[in-house]
Write a protein that binds this DNA or RNA. Structure first.
Lengths: 339, 339
DNA sequence: CTGTTAGCGCCTTCAA
DNA sequence: TTGAAGGCGCTAACAG
């Protein structure tokens, strides 16, 4: 089923058919109607490969995430897909698994398919890969990080906002010994979150206790291990803030394994508000990072660069807010042994 | 960066470059080496749009899932992506959200991008959409369902196997009042699972009690509601088998809300073994449906049809096995009121 | 073994 | 307002 066939049946040239389906205003309405009729009858639709080839535009956007298996991403992907499709773009999703080789393959694929832009929602990305894309003038959006360059923008997440709310919430419940379990500190985004936490503590006049800052890796196991280590160290916290919800789930598990309970002995706060956060036991108090908005901001920023009319490199700032559920409660009066 | 440029620099014709990068064995090794050198230097890679156009093969496979947000799917997608990429295929993922309109858009997109085959891992699919694909001779693989037609195959999941194991496990723990919460019965796949359960009960000589068969919708909320209704009905079960893990999580929540505990009062068994199953409270005993194997079977079945050398319509049968964790324990001696 | 050439399906000048 | 014709970048005969 090609354009030729439509042209033949409608008694016009292929040029006219092309103009018609592209809504060119020069076609005679009558002719157009006739062409559309044939198009419908035949169930014709243009071959996007051919279109891309001639126009040089693939109408494909790349979306790179670190791990599609982390519940944070599917919602982001869905949001991105929705807005992309809505705007006539296809998306090419790829997860890197935090693996350099995979990332390289991933970039290569995007290049081969001639993506018009790439949203890089992964925590870290090899510089030379970014350069490969930049070199071919492929617009990019990043999350958190802010690489320089023409056509490169970034969406900023206001971690401080949500973290402050979380800390205030805990303080108001009487907590003073508040711990933090970060993501892998090799990642800049993890450091940003940790910094936000430390600043918040400082802001409310709480002294930092090194024993109360652990390092996870954004997985349940990571949280479990980090918290287990922290509990072994002594100087127990009465509340823990985790840098994402998976970490928080691991943290709760560790607390329970130690024979303590959440939230009576230790309150736990997560970050992200993945859908399942509502269904953990107890339901998780967490800081919500709205994936849909993130997806929309990222898409918007990308498109502005694709159209080449970006005025700014900032793709916008995303607010985060605390969602209170049942994994937090008033702090116990400190036991004698703790000080 | 086009093939011309490479040809010019290597001092050969574009045909030779084409042959070289396609590993045609007729090229003189010396020439080939020279060409490859230029290719590397220039960082040249072929334009896949152009390739597709001339070859008529897009090397893209479609993957349709019902809801990327359901933790079952990301792992399936990842597995599918891995094996596809490994075989030189790109994948186009799309979630239907159980919505007819979205499904239609989805099929349209696949058709436009000229996918060479589609894996339909969603529970149900409008017949006329399937026909659209079938009509263009696009090979398909389905999950569970078994539509007829040339180039259409399906992967069968042996639900009975896992369900039997689960029922045996519960029986051996002394349970006799075993409930089941199904998926939406409008879906054939949900009915298949329910039938497997009922058969298992029957096989072990347990009478069916209508009050003990509820209907959920494969979401946490669905499980929560179904179980809440069941608890209100009286004739309490001592164990519940849920048709997927999300339903099981909802079920556990309902049990707790009713002031009972899992597993002491009611044992709960899930289905799928999503990654988070290990981290629920208590860790979920569940029937594992291996997503990687499913992905591989689906891919294999699809490719066989793409290559046009399928000997059979069956894409293989997938075994399921019980994974015992902590949401099941021996049944209580029945309370007086229960009989 | 290598080069020439004819398209793949479509969009886009350039004429009419 | 329409049609004819020239590519887009690449592969696949067909000649040399």
């Amino acid at each position: 089923m090609k354009i030729q066939e439509v042209a033949r049946r409608a008694g016009v040239s292929i040029a006219t058919v092309s103009r018609t389906i592209n809504n060119s205003s020069v076609v005679d309405p009558k002719t157009a109607k006739r062409v559309w009729k044939v198009v419908e009858e035949l169930g014709y639709y243009p071959n996007s490969q051919a279109r891309s080839l001639v126009s040089g535009k693939s109408r494909i956007l790349g979306l790179i995430v670190s791990d599609i298996t982390n519940p944070f991403f599917p919602e982001l992907i869905k949001g991105f897909e929705d807005v992309a499709i809505h705007n006539g773009y296809e998306i090419l999703v790829s997860s890197t698994d935090y693996d350099s080789a995979r990332m390289a393959v991933c970039v290569r694929r995007m290049l081969e398919r001639k993506v018009e832009g790439v949203a890089i929602m992964t925590s870290e990305m090899d510089k030379h890969l970014v350069d490969q894309l930049a070199h071919r003038n492929v617009p990019m959006v990043f999350l958190d990080v802010r690489p320089a360059g023409e056509g490169i923008s970034h969406v900023e997440v206001d971690y401080a906002m949500g973290v402050n709310e979380a800390v205030e919430h805990l303080l108001s419940l009487g907590h003073r010994r508040i711990a933090f379990i970060s993501g892998p500190l090799g990642l800049k985004s993890a450091r940003i979150r940790r910094t936000a936490f430390l600043r918040a503590l400082n802001r409310y006049g709480i002294d930092e206790d090194k024993r109360l800052v652990g390092e996870g890796d954004h997985t349940v196991d990571g949280g479990l291990n980090a918290m287990t280590r922290m509990l072994a160290l002594g100087g127990l916290p009465t509340a823990v803030l985790a840098s994402n919800d998976l970490t928080a789930i691991g943290t709760m598990r560790a607390v329970r394994r130690a024979g303590l309970s959440v939230p009576q002995d230790i309150s736990v706060v997560g970050f992200d508000d993945i859908r399942l956060a509502e269904f953990t036991e107890p339901p998780l108090t967490t800081v919500r990072l709205p994936r849909n908005e993130l997806a929309e901001l990222a898409f918007g920023a990308l498109i502005r660069n694709v159209d080449g009319q970006a005025k700014t490199r900032s793709g916008g700032k995303l607010e985060t807010h605390l969602v209170i559920r049942e994994s937090t409660c008033p702090a116990r009066a400190p036991a004698v042994s703790e000080r």
